[in-house]
Write a protein that binds this DNA or RNA. Structure first.
Lengths: 226, 226
DNA sequence: GACAATCCATGAGTGTGCTCATATCTTTTC
DNA sequence: GAAAAGATATGAGCACACTCATGGATTGTC
């Protein structure tokens, strides 16, 4: 079976010179389907909640067969995760690509980071509430979202650590510096909760809280030690 | 249908004078079945892992029908949780009921607390590794174990807070005291991880680590502020 | 002891997330 | 262009956690 290369030699086929310049019908379709899945899923998560949204419904809304969903995402949670991955990447880029922040104080960078995240999440408040509060929860959890979720969390906290170290000479670090990312993680979840329950116009209270708490926190970091 | 009380009056039946003194055949059986379920589940979790243990297998091993499991526990996770509930209760009692600890220093109380937990968990190391490391995970999560799990975590941390306050006048608390339980939670998870990977005889390394880190931690708490 | 009321074990059934062999479509090769 | 090779959409099917109407057993009442 499977006559492999019936002719003389496997001519090394100059595939695609560049890395991933695929623009065939297939590649286009693939990209389109992937986007449709994420979009459909997000909409359903937002309107019906995460648990009550079935993969069948996601497929139906995206106009594909149920099995196809799993050609693109290993699990249902992965679909949600891909949204958070985009969100985190977006926020990190917002800080990195802002030249004005280059030599700004730490609290300003962190403010921009978290603020970008909230802005990005804003249209999906219900989804965040449904999926995160009950699957990520007050002070722990990422629910069933295991592994890839941790990589994401790690990527996020690594960036935060980077910002902190950039702002304070490495010599000043002491035995407690490992706590900073953990503390920031808890802090971030707290901000999210605050934001979700914030009914002030344009979430002003959250912004104010963010601003103030970051000043206090950074002050503690730099005053407390040296 | 359903002729409700065909006679004259519902004689207020003097139920059981005390709260729950049921010793009939039914109650005995119920207790026995509940214990069989937990025991069977625990054994399977330990030998096969949490995810790969089916509720059908648990029921079969306990000698009951599959549906019966769900007359006793709402979910599969709840079975595992009931084990951790017992574990936490046991450890709290071990500290509370030890008169020698009454006026011992804080680090000694915390040492006893955590040590009791480890002792209790020891026979189920594989299960802890399987269920906790991957469902409760390095620094967050309680996996799908939601709600009841949080109550448990809360109960545990409330006790820790109690111990801390007992050892230091309330006036000395400041704006950061809310962090103590959170930090202790992370610390506790860290200890668990350490313990799981500790291959020294009788987990000596863990004990040593516990002892030392608690001294340092408590010293930081009391020196750091005032 | 007999009847009624209550409890609760039962296991077939349900809907779920996910798998997999197959058919269909696209791309490559000649 | 035709045919082989490769990719991928498909949906019936699977195993699972969990539900529920049923009947049989236990308890309470006279």
């Amino acid at each position: 079976m499977a006559t492999k290369s019936n002719s003389t030699a496997k001519a090394p086929p100059r595939k695609q010179s560049a890395k991933k310049r695929r623009t065939g019908k297939r590649a286009q379709n693939k990209e389109a389907i992937r986007k449709r899945i994420v979009k459909s899923a997000l909409h359903l998560f937002q309107t019906k909640g995460f648990d009550t949204t079935t993969t069948k419904a996601i497929a139906r809304k995206a106009g594909i067969a149920e099995g196809t969903v799993f050609n693109y995402f290993r699990t249902k949670e992965d679909i949600a995760l891909s949204f958070f991955e985009e969100e985190v990447d977006h926020a990190i880029a917002a800080v990195r690509d802002n030249p004005r922040l280059r030599k700004a104080p730490l609290e300003e960078k962190l403010f921009t980071l978290v603020h970008s995240q909230l802005e990005y999440l804003a249209p999906y408040e219900r989804f965040i509430g449904a999926a995160l509060i009950h699957a990520l929860n007050p002070a722990s959890h990422l629910g069933a979202f295991s592994h890839r979720a941790q990589q994401l969390r790690h990527r996020y906290l690594a960036f935060v650590t980077e910002l902190v170290e950039e702002s304070s000479p490495k010599q000043q670090r002491d035995a407690l510096s490992w706590l900073v990312p953990e503390a920031f993680w808890i802090y971030y979840l707290g901000v999210l909760l605050f934001w979700l329950y914030d009914s002030s116009k344009d979430k002003e209270h959250t912004i104010a809280f963010l601003d103030r708490s970051l000043h206090v926190g950074v002050a503690f970091l730099t005053n407390g030690r040296r």
